[in-house]
Simulated scan of single mutants.
Amino acid sequence: MLTRIRRRGLVLALATGLLTTQVVAAGASPAAASPQDCEGGANGFRDIPDTLRGTQAPVAPVGIFGRTATLYYGQVGGVTRGWAHLGGDTLSGDSVWMDWTKDGGNTWLQCGPFEVTSGGQTKTSAAQRTSSDANWRFRACLRWGRHEPPHVRCTAWW
């Protein structure tokens, strides 16, 4: 009797996990996940210094264990652009990226990840121009270390 209950519990747990995986897999996903997709002018991005700050976008920064990802915007090369910034108590292996969407978040291009190579270092994504189009949006994301499963936090879309 106890074995049958355990077996039902296991089947229910597996079915729930499979359903959850399918729901997550069916959701939106990035179109790319490489720094090369946004470095050196690719896709309209502009390389910026890792120390660059601008005006904080009106979305709350996200953080974990003393690290903070913030979405900024400002003038870069005479154009208003947005970018992701990672700061705080960073350690080697932490990374930051910026997701950019042109369809309100259904699909996006992931600009990064850009990895911190030494503790205390700040890091930015490349910068992309802003737009008055409501579907043209950004969010900043961070990954803490190289843990599996990854510890990832992203801001809301702006």
Rank of each mutant, 00 (worst) to 15 (best):
E115F: 04
Q75A: 12
T55M: 09
G88T: 09
T101H: 09
W158S: 10
A134K: 11
V11Y: 07
G119E: 08
L91A: 13
I5G: 03
I48V: 13
L71H: 05
C38Y: 09
N135E: 07
C154A: 00
P61D: 01
D103P: 12
S125I: 01
A26Q: 08
R153D: 03
F45A: 11
L71S: 05
Y72W: 13
L14D: 00
F45P: 03
G54S: 06
A126L: 03
T155W: 00
G17F: 10
A57T: 02
I5E: 07
S29A: 09
R7F: 08
R53W: 00
W108Q: 06
R137K: 14
I5V: 12
T16A: 15
D47G: 04
G9M: 11
V62D: 01
A25T: 07
T3N: 12
T122W: 05
P149G: 01
L14M: 04
P49G: 02
Q22K: 10
N135Y: 05
G88S: 08
T107W: 02
G112P: 03
A127V: 11
T21Y: 10
T68I: 14
P149L: 02
A25M: 14
A60F: 02
T55A: 13
Q128G: 09
G88K: 00
W144L: 01
D37I: 01
V96W: 00
T80N: 15
R139S: 01
F65E: 12
E115C: 01
A31N: 14
P58K: 07
W144I: 03
I48P: 04
S92T: 14
A84D: 06
Q22E: 09
C154D: 00
Q22G: 13
G66Y: 09
G87V: 06
R6M: 10
R153V: 01
T68A: 07
A156N: 12
N135Q: 13
D89I: 03
W158M: 01
D47E: 06
G27W: 13
L142T: 02
Y73N: 10
C111T: 05
Q22I: 15
R139K: 09
H85K: 15
A28H: 11
A69I: 00
S29P: 01
E148G: 05
H147D: 13
R129K: 14
D47C: 01
T3H: 09
R67T: 15
E115L: 03
T3A: 15
P30C: 04
T90C: 12
Y73M: 07
T16C: 14
T21E: 11
A26R: 12
L10S: 12
A127G: 05
T55P: 04
F65N: 15
V76L: 07
G145P: 04
G54I: 04
R4V: 08
L109A: 05
G87M: 06
G63W: 08
S29Y: 09
P30G: 06
A13S: 11
R53A: 09
E148H: 14
T70R: 01
R7N: 12
V23P: 03
T107M: 05
G105F: 06
P58C: 11
G88Q: 08
G120P: 04
A25G: 05
R46N: 03
R4I: 07
A60Q: 12
E148R: 06
W83L: 10
P58H: 10
G66D: 11
R7C: 07
G9R: 13
G78A: 11
F65A: 15
L14G: 08
G78C: 13
L12D: 11
R8I: 10
A69K: 01
G9N: 15
D103K: 13
